[in-house]
Write a protein that binds this DNA or RNA. Structure first.
Length: 281
DNA sequence: GCGACAG
DNA sequence: ATCTTGTCGC
């Protein structure tokens, strides 16, 4: 497993490059990082982290006639991470690779700033049998499409603390992702275990063909997941993580949907993660 | 050009 | 995700 990328350190390096008599913008910084979608995350980071030394070099909008400094020397790290995701996406196996399912696990994380409190709950016959937890500090903010680089280390650590499971439900998309490698897929590939992506909001694609109770989500002409209607009116988005088919993924999630809006394993992991965050030992 | 954008 | 007041719906 590669060393987690330190987004905040990279941002600091960019700020160091801004000349004393010039200013830049969060937008220019995001482009230098390799993806403009990180603009918001950078604005937040500059406010929350220790950037007092450089914050005066950043302005939201440019004054009259001024140009933002943009001549950064950079290897565009987010671009590299995106390429990593594209490579990982090629390794996804979206067919069922097991015979029976007895143990179903769910993972979720709760945060205190950049510290993730993660829990993995294993259910057998609808009963919680085991729970693994992990506390992992991250140096990477939430950026749409790059969630795995913030959360996967914690999720993987918690999942490795339980004795075993047949399939793991992950709170986040699987292949229903801009580059086909969301958190659930990232985790499944690293653990080499079956995973299903479960999300409360859509990241890419749109509901197309009706399949009775649910519909297929299509992105760039490819089926990448399923949209299941929920009681409240919103929908639940299910996609293949790794080593499982979409049909089986939907079947499993629906069988665990009871109430609560989330499948039981994830709902329980969510509650447990919150508990760990509020009652750290 | 404007908006969308997992947790 | 997290914080947090008022508010919409069952």
């Amino acid at each position: 497993m590669a060393t987690p990328f330190d987004f905040y350190a990279a941002l600091n390096d960019l700020l160091d490059q801004v000349p004393e008599d010039q200013v830049t913008t969060p937008r220019q910084l995001s482009l230098a990082m390799g993806d403009p979608i990180a603009t918001q995350a950078i604005e937040d980071a500059l406010r929350r982290e220790d950037y007092e030394e450089h914050i005066y070099k950043v302005v939201q909008s440019l004054g009259s006639g001024k140009a933002a400094f943009s001549d950064f020397v950079t290897d565009e790290p987010l671009n590299k991470l995106a390429e990593t995701q594209r490579r990982m996406a090629e390794k996804v196996i979206s067919i069922d690779t097991f015979y029976g399912i007895t143990k179903i696990a769910g993972v979720d994380a709760a945060y205190y700033d950049d510290r993730a409190y993660c829990a993995c709950v294993v259910l057998e016959r609808d009963r919680a049998m085991e729970c693994g937890t992990a506390v992992v500090d991250s140096s990477f903010p939430y950026i749409p499409g790059y969630l795995a680089f913030r959360e996967a280390p914690a999720v993987i650590s918690a999942a490795r603390k339980v004795s075993g499971f047949d399939v793991l439900l992950v709170n986040g998309h699987g292949v229903a992702h801009p580059r086909g490698c969301g958190l659930a897929t990232h985790v499944g590939l690293e653990l080499d275990a079956p995973t299903i992506g479960v999300a409360g909001r859509r990241l890419v694609g749109e509901g197309k063909e009706d399949r009775g109770d649910w519909r297929l989500i299509v992105h760039r002409g490819r089926v990448v997941g399923a949209e299941l209607p929920r009681e409240e009116g919103s929908a639940l988005y299910v996609s293949v993580g790794h080593l499982i088919s979409l049909e089986t993924s939907v079947e499993i999630v629906r069988s665990l949907m009871g109430k609560l809006g989330l499948p039981k394993p994830i709902a329980m992991a969510h509650a447990r993660a919150l508990d760990e965050k509020n009652h750290p030992r």
